[in-house]
Structures are given as structure tokens and as C-alpha cells.
Design a protein around this nucleic acid. Sequence first.
DNA 1: ATTGTCCATATCAGTTTGATATGATATATT
DNA 2: AATATATCATATCAAACTGATATGGACAAT
Lengths: 148, 148
Amino acid sequence: MFVKITSKTLYSLHFLCALTIKAKSNPQKPVHLREIAKEYDIPFKFLEQIAILMKSVGLVRGTRGKTGGYQLAETPESINLARIIKATEGELLPWADIEGGNEVIGGILHTIFQEQRDEIDRKLSAISLSQIAEKARQRLEPAPMFYL
Amino acid sequence: MFVKITSKTLYSLHFLCALTIKAKSNPQKPVHLREIAKEYDIPFKFLEQIAILMKSVGLVRGTRGKTGGYQLAETPESINLARIIKATEGELLPWADIEGGNEVIGGILHTIFQEQRDEIDRKLSAISLSQIAEKARQRLEPAPMFYL
DNA sequence: ATTGTCCATATCAGTTTGATATGATATATT
DNA sequence: AATATATCATATCAAACTGATATGGACAAT
């Protein structure tokens, strides 16, 4: 593939959206991973790893113990898609060996893609978690009554 | 990684550039893979696979027998970078499962990236093999005499 | 016939990805 | 204090992908 999004990113977005949506109706209260795993059909143990990763990059806070769980460490408005994807997929710029420099074709490609990468970074940075969560919430809403 | 270029693409570009450059001084004459593999330091057997791939997508022609070799199947002006990368890395659009549709986050990401992918496609399509080969030729040129 | 090329698969080691297993640590409840 | 339930942290594993190698067939000029 050329542009690649792994399921780790998908799961991470589900996770963060869940925290965002649930915080609306009940702020302050941590959300259990089991709950999210069940609702979004994510393998629980995999979700645990993702939660730890999200915590390590400062996007969420974990509370231990029986009434523990996770909640966003920042407002969903201040968290953008670029930060999330960089956490899950690594830096947007890939070819470390190409950047080496003296390799001819690599150098050419590097020049060609530099501009494009900056553009992608800008666009992803302009999309906030709150926007994504809002769209997800809309799509998840049950059909209006008058369809029944 | 997020945007990824494998060595198969690098080697392919070396291969196609070699054919382009050599065709200038000696058109019609097929170029041996062994020659290219040596000059560009590409594992010969790997290059063979790449040559077959390039042939299967119609970018080069192979001539068998003792005086055989490879040559471009089209003019280097009509071959663009998008075609080459699609041949080596697959379609620029990756997430077949995401495109499925009814998955919420996947659908959102698909929308977000659609525009960007088209943009990348346009930019890569605008860069021809002849341009790349020309740049490569310039960089490969020995230093001018008056530097000695 | 022999040689040197393309052509086509099969295989293999290393890495990445998705997922599971095991257990430690922390805290609210009983 | 004991227990239940949560986060936290590694270790491990199978499948897929990547880079590379191996083996052998088909073809044409000498």
C-alpha cells in the first residue's frame, strides 16, 4: 500500500470517540475499557494496549481500581487527527534511508513528497476529535421515529 | 508508517531510469539486467522479478535470447510516476475494508482522505519518467573538469 | 549444441501487524 | 483484611508482508 491506515488507528479513534461522547452525558466519570470493547466490538486486550499507548502520548488519563477507567486528558477540540495517527502509525514521514541523501532516486522522491507530506499534516491537524466524534454520533443515532 | 515507499519502488525507478538513459545513446538495443543490477547495485534476482512486474503492467518490453534484454514499451514522456508506484505499491487507496461503507469511523476517514488521495494522484501523474531520468542523469554526471 | 538472456515459481528469513496470555499494581467495596 | 475489578506492563504467537535467494524452464544468437 501507499497510504496506510492500520486497525490500530481505527480502534484508537473508536476509543477516543467513545470517551468524547460519553464525557458529554457524564463528565468526570472514567469509562471502562470493557464497556468500549463490547460496544465497538474491539478485542479487549488489544484495546488495553491501545489505551496504554494513548496514555503514553498524553491523550488520555487512566484511573486505577474498581471504579477506574479512562477519560480524555484534554478537550476533544484540542486533540487533532494528526496527533492520533502519528501516535498509532508513527511519523508521517517514512523513508529514513531515503533521506540519507546521496542516493539519487531517493533524493528525488524525497523532494517530490516533501510538499505533499506537509499538506497532509496540515489537513489532518485541522480536523479535531470533537468533529470526528460528532459525525460518528450522528451516524450512530437510531433512525427517526417516523421511519417506523 | 503512514506514507510508505518500499525498495521495490526505488529499484523500479532505477531500472526504468537506466532504460531511459541508455536508450538515448543507443535506441532499439535492449539492455541486459545484469548490467543494470551491477551499475545500480541491485540484487540481480530481485531485479529480475521487478522487470517481470514492469513488463506485466506494460511499461517495458523483454527480448529473449542471447542478445536480449529490456527496453521501454513507451516513451519516457508518457510514463508517469503514479503508474510506476501503483505497479509496485498497489493502488494508492488502501483501506478496502474501510471502503466497505457502513463502518462509522472508516467511512469518516474515507471521506477525509479521498480528496488528499486524488491530489497525490494528480501530482504523481504530472511527473514523467523522462523528468526523473533527467534529474538522475544530472546528479550522476561526474564533476566538471575545472573542479580538478 | 552451447551460451546467455528472459521468464516463472517456490522458498526463506526478518519484520510488522493483529491478537492473546500472564501477571502485577492499585483502589472501592464487603 | 479479603475480595473484586480495574489499569498497567510484558511476553508471546500466528498471519501477512518485504526483501532476497534458489531452481529451473523457454528462447534466440553464435
